[in-house]
Design a protein around this nucleic acid. Structure first.
Length: 406
DNA sequence: TCTGGGGTCCTAGGACCC
DNA sequence: TCTGGGGTCCTAGGACCC
């Protein structure tokens, strides 16, 4: 079963503020350069879409109401929804803040049918949070996700082995989870437009053109998908931890760029430390005003989650980059992750350093945000403005991927 | 009054090793 | 008198997802 909350952020806001109900609203970030994260169904009717900037949204719908998103509300709602889902089955995978997969294979008895179970899930969520969702039930995650997408809002679609071939036969291949615009185009050039055609395409052709995913594509066209629901505690380990930010204005000013890099390094370091993770690679991403985006990474001699070590690496990469114009976005991430050993260093300096980081993390945990931070972040002059930016739907309510913002 | 931020996975070339 | 074949790791970019 796949549960997909309808216009999640916008619906939460409309529940909280009756004045917003029935109105075209768009949830955006607080930064100047922001985009629509979620549009209410009233706004979608005017063509407002996720990813539009304010100007585009206003053009599409002049009476649109912009609402600055509030992460804590969405995390709160998400946790409560997951609790409800967990009362039906222990096998709940929080796929994103507003989507979940639930293995209900062994949980049908009290309800009799999948449909009865799904109706009860919808009723409980509506009762507790006043929110609607679309539910898809199918033999696997691929088809369940497809099914939940077929009727919005407040839908319920059930697909079984008997009905899925009929649905897939004329379904555009690009509707499948994992087949995006580029693959759709490439498949189209091969004369493959529907899932039915994809499922019948010669394996040799697909393998030839798409490498290792060729085989999976053919199976997907046939509705075959073997990934299991991964409940809490059984997810894959995180592969990277990163933060990036679009600056309030493009800048070439070295001091400002360094301050942003320090702040990003601290956000990355703090989150890695919180989860006992250390990385062996640091990656710096830069976007120019023309949107040209590139990155350079550096392998470290040892694993680290120390803000200073991350920052120093980012700086050294920056030196190598030789920026050609002003910068629009900066990003810092670490990868090559390993669970920190927690072992005490032999060197007094390192031990003091570690205690300093722990103390700072503790203060920031207790008082929120970046109560304690680095002096050079606070230097006068060119801003390292504390803007929230846009809320990311990929956030998880719990675990490494939970992003703590203020 | 221009385009966010969080991720994962795959590819392809080159360095390096035996 | 002309250059094998196996492998790993690293890097940068891009497709795809929410």
């Amino acid at each position: 079963m796949h549960v997909d909350m309808n216009a999640f952020f916008a619906s939460v806001e409309q529940r909280c503020s009756p004045a917003l109900r029935g109105k075209p609203i768009a949830v955006v970030g607080s930064a100047k350069r922001t985009v629509v994260t979620t549009a209410s169904y009233e706004a979608r009717a005017f063509g407002v879409k996720t990813g539009m900037n304010r100007f585009e949204a206003k053009m599409a719908c002049p009476q649109i109401i912009f609402v600055v998103g509030d992460n804590s509300k969405y995390i709160d709602a998400s946790v409560r929804i997951l609790e409800i889902l967990n009362s039906f089955s222990p096998l709940v995978e929080a796929y994103s803040i507003d989507e979940a997969f639930i293995d209900i294979t062994g949980c049908l008895a009290p309800f009799g049918t999948p449909s009865a179970l799904a109706m009860e899930v919808k009723r409980r969520i509506k009762e507790a949070l006043g929110l609607t969702c679309s539910i898809g039930i199918a033999p696997n995650k691929l088809l369940a996700k497809l099914a939940s997408d077929m009727k919005k809002p407040d839908g319920l679609v059930i697909m079984d082995e008997a009905s899925s071939p009929g649905v897939l036969e004329d379904l555009p291949a690009g509707e499948l989870w994992g087949i995006g615009p580029r693959l759709t185009e490439h498949l189209g050039r091969l004369g493959i437009r529907t899932c039915g055609q994809l499922g019948r395409a010669p394996l040799s052709l697909l393998r030839d053109r798409f490498g290792v995913i060729g085989e999976r594509l053919k199976l997907m066209g046939q509705g075959i998908y073997s990934n299991e629901v991964a409940p809490a505690g059984h997810e894959d380990e995180a592969r990277s931890v990163g933060h990036s930010t679009t600056l309030p204005a493009d800048t070439s000013e070295k001091g400002a760029i360094r301050r942003y890099l320090l702040k990003l390094s601290e956000m990355v370091g703090a989150r890695a430390r919180e989860h006992g993770l250390k990385g062996s690679k640091v990656c710096l991403t830069v976007r120019y005003p023309d949107f040209y985006t590139f990155s350079r990474q550096k392998t470290l001699p040892s694993h680290t989650n120390d803000t200073r070590a991350i920052y120093m690496s980012a700086l050294s990469i920056l030196e190598v980059m030789r920026l050609r114009t002003a910068v629009r976005l900066l990003g810092v991430s670490i990868s090559g992750l390993a669970k920190g050993s927690g072992q005490m260093s032999l060197f007094e300096d390192d031990r003091r350093r570690q205690r300093l980081l722990e103390a700072m993390d503790e203060v920031n945990r207790s008082f929120g945000g970046y109560t304690i931070t680095w002096g050079s972040l606070l230097d006068e002059g060119s801003g390292c403005d504390d803007e929230t930016g846009v809320i990311s739907p990929a956030w998880r309510p719990v675990g490494v991927k939970r992003i703590n913002v203020k």
